[in-house]
């Protein structure tokens, strides 16, 4: 009753559609450049690890991954830390301007990054954070904090109010109640919103590239270096691309049981 006729076929075809381009990237990353350019082969005939070896031994390459992970983790921590109390406030209390504030937050989630690229460049240069992971982490807050507040608010609203009242009657102070009781209760919600913060910070490139030049350059920006006078180094580009997929895949694997609920923003 739940599903439609031919669902296995539809699902199968769609999954193939999703996986084929990724397979092609993986396939290319194991080929030598001469094999890529000269022949059309469905799998690597002379498999090689040379591209991966180059990325893992060349500091200018692997530092890009470290830089990216650095600002993504920073951003996730900042977003969740500031969003938690706000989500509680929005869920439990009515206060002056609450609806307007919520809309304002949400509208920032929707603002195009291209609008902010240039002003951010000026702002972070002026306060001396340019080219540090902090600049990118703070800049990404503009779309991750509203999202985290939105998701967490749904989860906090799922916790019955009686629990708060009982805790306060039992003599819990507000911070103690928050950390000891509320946070464990919405742990899955925190996991889901951390997943979303990680995801959106990891995939964003425009701001990350604008706000860094040398020291904090994200891997995505370093990938553009594969264009050289001798033409594209396709194999290297593919290998770098494959390595950017791996952190995301790992994160998905850990939260796979919460994905469906998380995508409904805890509100269905």
């Amino acid at each position: 009753m739940h599903s439609i006729p031919g669902r296995r076929l539809i699902m199968g075809l769609f999954l193939i559609f999703l996986l084929l381009p990724i397979y092609w990237l993986v396939n290319m990353s194991f080929k030598t450049n001469s094999e890529i350019v000269s022949t059309m082969t469905l799998w690597p005939h002379n498999p090689t690890l040379q591209h991966y070896r180059r990325i893992f031994t060349d500091e200018s390459w692997y530092s890009g991954y470290i830089n990216s992970l650095e600002y993504v983790v920073l951003n996730t921590i900042i977003s969740i830390a500031v969003a938690l109390p706000a989500a509680y406030a929005f869920s439990r209390y009515r206060f002056l301007g609450d609806k307007h504030l919520f809309f304002w937050l949400l509208s920032n989630r929707m603002a195009p990054a291209a609008v902010y690229a240039l002003p951010f460049f000026n702002l972070y240069s002026a306060i001396g954070l340019f080219d540090t992971p902090w600049a990118v982490a703070l800049a990404h807050c503009i779309f991750n904090v509203p999202l985290a507040v939105w998701i967490l608010e749904g989860f906090v609203s799922g916790v019955p109010r009686e629990i708060d009242e009982t805790a306060f009657l039992d003599g819990y102070s507000f911070p103690r109640f928050f950390i000891k009781i509320l946070v464990p209760l919405i742990a899955s919600g925190i996991g889901v919103s951390a997943f979303f913060c990680f995801m959106f910070s990891w995939v964003e490139l425009l701001l990350a590239r604008t706000l860094t030049s040398v020291h904090a350059k994200p891997i995505a920006a370093i990938m553009t270096r594969t264009v050289s006078a001798a033409g594209m180094d396709w194999g290297l580009l593919a290998a770098a691309g494959v390595l950017t997929i791996i952190p995301g895949a790992l994160v998905i694997w850990f939260v796979r049981n919460y994905i469906a609920r998380g995508f409904a923003l805890g509100r269905v």
């Binding site: 999954l15 995939v203 997929i245 895949a249 796979r256 994905i259």
Partner: peptide, 13 residues
């Protein structure tokens, strides 16, 4: 997991 995979690939990739 496979469905979510494209969502977590950096946009330039």
């Amino acid at each position: 997991v496979i469905l979510a995979l494209p969502l977590l690939i950096p946009w330039n990739v």
